[in-house]
């Protein structure tokens, strides 16, 4: 009974015009993602989450009932408030996801820089060994190879 009432109230907030606009926006959004992937500006593995978001938008536009069910599940009377809360939570999740990805990449970059530095130093050590004991002479050779 209460669910039916909420659905009735919801219809007032979501007119067919807003539904069409939302659906078109969702489609344009997904086309944009496709285009970004096609131009190698976005990698497939990071695009999945955006397609899910686009499909969610489309689903919400096509079947407003979903939104009302979600609103009643959350215990929110106003479907608009429910919509904003859900979108906000999703965005928060996305932002966190990006922080995780960023941290991983920062660690990878650091390790890459370390590997390169170590390799160069090992080369220098090997060169020194080839030129005899550690001293000023091998250092000169190292300096020259550094310049060229």
């Amino acid at each position: 009974m209460r669910l039916a009432f909420a659905a009735e109230a919801g219809q007032v907030h979501l007119t067919s015009q807003t539904r069409i606009v939302a659906a078109v926006l969702a489609l344009v959004f997904m086309l944009m993602i496709l285009e970004l992937i096609r131009r190698d500006r976005l990698q497939e593995r990071y695009s999945v989450i955006w397609f899910v978001a686009g499909l969610g938008m489309l689903a919400g536009a096509a079947f407003p009932g979903i939104l009302e069910v979600l609103a009643s599940l959350l215990g929110v009377r106003n479907t608009n408030v429910a919509l904003f809360s859900i979108v906000l939570l999703l965005l928060l999740g996305l932002a966190l996801n990006f922080s995780v990805i960023m941290s991983r990449q920062a660690a990878q970059i650091t390790r890459l820089a370390q590997e390169r530095a170590i390799e160069k130093a090992s080369q220098q050590a090997a060169e020194r060994q080839r030129n005899g004991s550690s001293g000023e002479q091998p250092l000169q050779a190292e300096e020259q190879s550094f310049e060229s």
Binding site: T110, A113, Q114, R116, A121, S122, Q124, R128, L139, F146
Partner: peptide
């Protein structure tokens, strides 16, 4: 450092003391 006779492991950009120390341990 090179002139003074040390080996040098050079990180391409500033990474913070922790990363520098880890480079030493790794080496």
């Amino acid at each position: 450092a090179r002139e003074a006779g040390a080996l040098v492991a050079s990180l391409p950009f500033n990474q913070g003391l922790g990363a520098a120390l880890q480079t030493g341990y790794l080496y």
